[in-house]
Design a protein around this nucleic acid. Sequence first.
DNA 1: GTCTATAACGAGATAGAC
DNA 2: GTCTATCTCGTTATAGAC
Lengths: 235, 235
Amino acid sequence: MSSNSAPGGARARARIEVTAAIKDAARRQLAADGAARLSLRAVARELGMVSSALYRYFPSRDDLLTALIIDAYDSLGEAAESSHDTVADAGPLERWTAVCESVRRWALAHPHEYALIYGSPVPGYRAPEATIPAASRVGLLLIAVVRDAHRSGRLAVTPLPATLRPEASRMAADLAPDLPPPVVAALVAAWAQLYGLVGFEVFGQFHRVVEDRAPFFRHAVTRLAQGVGLEPGHA
Amino acid sequence: MSSNSAPGGARARARIEVTAAIKDAARRQLAADGAARLSLRAVARELGMVSSALYRYFPSRDDLLTALIIDAYDSLGEAAESSHDTVADAGPLERWTAVCESVRRWALAHPHEYALIYGSPVPGYRAPEATIPAASRVGLLLIAVVRDAHRSGRLAVTPLPATLRPEASRMAADLAPDLPPPVVAALVAAWAQLYGLVGFEVFGQFHRVVEDRAPFFRHAVTRLAQGVGLEPGHA
DNA sequence: GTCTATAACGAGATAGAC
DNA sequence: GTCTATCTCGTTATAGAC
């Protein structure tokens, strides 16, 4: 390692800046043409660079896409976590609602990045395992909220039909071994359903169907929380 | 109009066949490259036609897209309706579940068409009003199931918080004036949540999270039905 | 070592003349 | 409807500046 490669060195700083500029230009292209049409050459053109120069920063177009996906998941995760932290001392239901509403707000503010991570898969692209940690942040946050409710005995557990019990136990072992399997199964379902509500709003499916969307969403995610076992009332 | 343009005439039949061939080729392109990259020229090439000839059948790329979207909605609607009809005499909960499971089956069998209608919007494309009837079929089916339950007094109605009542009344007036507003609001939410479950499975979000997906889905939509007010037990 | 630029490849899209 | 000239794309090899 040369002395210039130390963190904070001029070279390292320049590299970080150029990398950020590339991703910003790519995000603009994402918004205009969609992920399927993301083109390294167009990004390079917008930056006044030559396309081959981009390969010093991203080994391939798919690696640039991966970076954008991880950034989007992290941006969403950060929004959810910081929103959660503002009500960290409130009851589980309030914390659950805060997380869900921050997901909705982030998605409405970043529709193209939302489409990138929760919309149609990009043809020909396979997301690598490296996206998993960032993709898990919101889910882990919801698990943490439910875990706290469980620890303080404020979680109702509804038994599952026999057909679902093996899968629920498997999911619980993977995701939250300290929680009852029926709760984990309900949590995973609620997680998917949350993104159904958000996706319908962001992608326009609620057009001329739901008009006053904020209270509609708030009520829906409150009932989602109840389905997981979080009950209202006590802080 | 010449005598050959009568319905069933040789010319009309040829037109129908070519139109179908164009849409089939376009669907193949959809699967390979996604809707954003749908190109009239590529479709023409696959059919051994010249691109200008396609304009006799579809005035623009967007019109071809619209036809594919309407076809997809109709295909899904037909699957849901015929699946529903096989249990038309059963209880509301069985009918609800049949509809939801047919949506899931159709989506898994036609992932690219599912992405076209419920995935990311196609950049630069605005769906015309003409898509609305086809897009409404599954929703209307779910409304019909809940309406029958309501008429026979098998529907539980949960009151809504005050903030949501105006919007629920507005939705009920639009969608199902004979149903209680709280039920309509719950139904719209369940509708979006259903597609959250389906979308997560089709788009791979359940990868390494939910493995035994059929029972998981069945249980989740059963609970969705209960959220709308359908109770199990009585046929 | 780190970066950018030139040039090229093979493939495909596109516009316009004919 | 066909042909061609000119674009686009991702990617690589190579040469040279710092």
